[in-house]
């Protein structure tokens, strides 16, 4: 089961851009509706495992993907 870590985006196309990078780099992820606790705007976010966070941050920087931030929800 994937952990409850989320990446939020200003719009869905930034999310999809990151998705294809995650796929290429074989990093486990799940597209999820943005949890209400994190934002009142609806739309996609990406769930990931904490162990991959540094690599994902690197991909985001290198590919200039706009994100709103990384968040973790306590269970």
């Amino acid at each position: 089961m994937i952990e409850k870590n989320y990446i939020l985006f200003p719009s869905y196309n930034h999310g999809l851009a990151l998705e294809s990078l995650l796929k290429q780099n074989k990093i486990q992820y799940i597209i999820s509706p943005t949890p209400r606790q994190l934002s009142v705007c609806c739309g996609i976010s990406i769930m990931y495992n904490k162990k991959d966070e540094d690599l994902i941050k690197k991909l985001i920087d290198e590919n200039k993907i706009d994100i709103l931030g990384f968040y973790t929800l306590e269970r």
């Binding site: 869905y12 509706p33 943005t34 609806c42 996609i44």
Partner: peptide, 13 residues
């Protein structure tokens, strides 16, 4: 994941 995406954007995209 595509269908997760569609549901997430159900009232958006």
């Amino acid at each position: 994941n595509y269908f997760n995406f569609v549901v997430s954007e159900v009232h958006g995209l």
